[in-house]
Write a protein that binds this DNA or RNA. Sequence first.
DNA 1: TCTGGGGTCCTAGGACCC
DNA 2: TCTGGGGTCCTAGGACCC
Length: 420
Amino acid sequence: MSWAIVDVANFYVSAERLFDPSLRGVPVIVLSNNDGCAVARSEEAKALHVRMGEPVFKIRDRIKRHGIQLRSSNYELYADLNRRFNAVIADHSDLVEIYSIDESFFRLPALANGLGDVGTAHRVREDIARSVGLPTRIGLGPTRTLSKVANALAKATEKVWGGVVDLHDLELRRRLFEHWPVGEVWGIGSALEARLRPLGVKTTADLAALPPAVARDIGTVVLERLVRELGGIECDDFKVAPEPLKATAVTRQFGEPVTALPELREAMARRAARAAEKIRAQGLAASRLIAFAHGSRYKPNPPSASRSARLSPPTNDPRVIVGIAGKMMETMFQPGGVYTKCGVLLEDLSPEGQGQADLFATADPKAPGLLAAMDGLNARYGRNTVILAAQGCGGRSFDTKRSQKSPAWTTRIGEIPVAR
DNA sequence: TCTGGGGTCCTAGGACCC
DNA sequence: TCTGGGGTCCTAGGACCC
């Protein structure tokens, strides 16, 4: 098998630059939700040592001194561009797996010599650059893991090898792995890296040389599979049809800290309603609900609590979910606590109507029609056109901050760019 | 004094990814 | 003053069953 993975360079920044030429050639940072941290950096920003995940308030002086441009994250735009570049990939491949918002695995026609695949990979890059306008890198290899490592190497060697690296060749792997730090390998995080270091496993070559049983001993079966995949043995397959969601979460930091119970209830209701809406859109119902609320972890003694409950029968009815989450918020609330975040998790998701009926609960016969009407109106006239009273009206100070958001250039008729 | 064996299910927590 | 959000997978340990 021949695996390929394409990733978009500094995706969020590249997306922002597409419709705003003033951002080109200057340092740009795209911020996390609530405008808190840097989650994407242009090459110019990286050169100024802005780190991934760095809080914005800590780099205010650099932002000012170097004129670093800030943008809030604009997921509507990124999701649309994701759709577009995947359509281009599909022109070249019969099998595409969307792995994340900025990465997709795909299969290339396996030619006898690897050169054909490299040529195709270059054409995919060129097509995406021409028809979508996004810069990409591509890694090729006989397994998923090897293509991921190749992709990382393509990033590091872009100027030399033009953004495509093929790791089908054993000799090339041997040479490159000796210089590639083990912590850079997909699946090796800081904890595993720290466990591997004292054992003398510092490079990818060291890791690939571990006997699988030893790897399992150091980590789990996950590390064992990783080692096998580095050796060219496939342990993982394409996931073309997206697996049904197993759990979903809606958790948000507050724009401003909250101390009053009525506001906390309202904030919780907004998150719970959104979570219920998400699973309805997938035709799923939840069997377990978890709600939590806490204060800043950078403060001493922040309030922190969570509650969980089984939902029987499984449900996606916002009236039920918002009701329970609201009661949970009441039992968690500590007077005097300064809260900065709350959220709802829905777990044990199953297809709607498939769960075991509850012997003691009678289903509301009107619910399906009511919820379909509500979702229909919100789809047609915009999110939150119809809401539950518990969610409260209008924008509130505790909603997420997004002060620098760019327009939805490609998906809203009122926000398309104007040319003069 | 001596105190089985083999399962399943659930939960919490850790680790990883983007 | 200000520090993101949303997923998956695995394991250990407890509760429970026969």
